[in-house]
Write a protein that binds this DNA or RNA. Structure first.
Lengths: 172, 172
DNA sequence: CACTAACAGTTAGTGCACTAACTATCTGGA
DNA sequence: TCCAGATAGTTAGTGCACTAACTGTTAGTG
């Protein structure tokens, strides 16, 4: 009980930051810290919640969310190497390796050695994997409905996230 | 090779959605699907990338990102039950249980039975856990610097994420 | 008072997600 | 030609994150 609770709801809940960085040259460093704490927290929670929203929708397709992302990539272009998929969806080969084996076990992809480069794998959609796309078309509208956000909000979110990805992906 | 690749970069890369839902009453359902695919993808990648940004910064503190979120909650209010922490950062008790044992093993918290309710645990900061807060104050500015985003962008992101959390958290 | 509901937390099992260490293949010179 | 270094993927080990099934405690109800 050393530090008394500042709010009942917990982590900096309703402290709306005032946007005035253009008239005030220096933002209070204290506010900056708090804002960022909220952003890291909000990003993690929002991602978990939204992925949780996908779970029941993807379940009839027999896919998890990362598996769904891999399938989206393959529906765009079918023979891809592990490395290429990893670059597209920002995942390490070590993460994809077992995931792709599960997709193979489910009969959605094949994992064959690339003819030009025996090191690489050619991940190819099977007929079954290609057909699954039809069912997957039903997924996005269900998610949008469950999310219950307006298109403008979705677009604003997407814009912000794109900036974050642009700022974080190339540097690493 | 049934579907030829629409773009070399993969998942709907630069298809900026046109915001005209107020003059056109019906948005093309096809565009809607694509936008959403981008949002789910962008959210997952952005969260992974940003958490990855925290990794090296939190490493000297001996914390992982979810552990950091738990500590943030405890720095706000110290004796909390497992359930309360879970509500604050949207995690299942089953996820927190081993995590809290690791924090206890690290000497940052204690896990004692709650005096009023023998079912509940009172998770309390130790002196060491309380002192770690001083080091943690260095974390947010480092992240903001590594992110390299303007404050306005951060605030816009935070606003969008808050709407997502509001839309997803209570409904479930 | 007993007995059932609800509740708090834990355990087991599956599946990401990362780093580090490894095998196998390919490539560019000396 | 041979071989050092880069590259593609796998494996091992740690730590989330979820659901389902479990133990133990509390509280409400007949």
């Amino acid at each position: 009980m050393t530090r008394s609770a500042s709010t009942p709801t917990g982590i900096r809940p309703s402290r709306r930051p005032v946007t005035r960085s253009h008239d005030a040259p220096t933002v209070s460093p204290d506010d900056l810290l708090k804002l960022d704490q909220q952003v890291c927290f909000a990003l993690a929670v929002a991602a978990r919640n939204v992925i949780g929203l996908y779970r029941p929708v993807l379940e009839p397709l027999g896919l998890t969310h990362p598996q769904y992302l891999v399938m989206l990539a393959l529906w765009e272009r079918s023979p891809l190497t592990v490395r290429e998929i990893g670059r597209l969806i920002s995942l390490e080969p070590a993460t994809l390796s077992p995931l792709l084996k599960r997709l193979e076990a489910a009969g959605l992809v094949t994992r064959d050695r690339h003819p030009d480069d025996e090191r690489a794998l050619a991940i190819t959609l099977t007929e079954r994997g290609r057909r699954l796309r039809e069912q997957a078309l039903e997924v996005p509208p269900q998610i949008v409905e469950r999310l219950g956000l307006r298109i403008e909000d979705l677009e604003a979110l997407h814009g912000s996230l794109t900036r974050v990805i642009a700022a974080t992906t190339p540097a690493d």
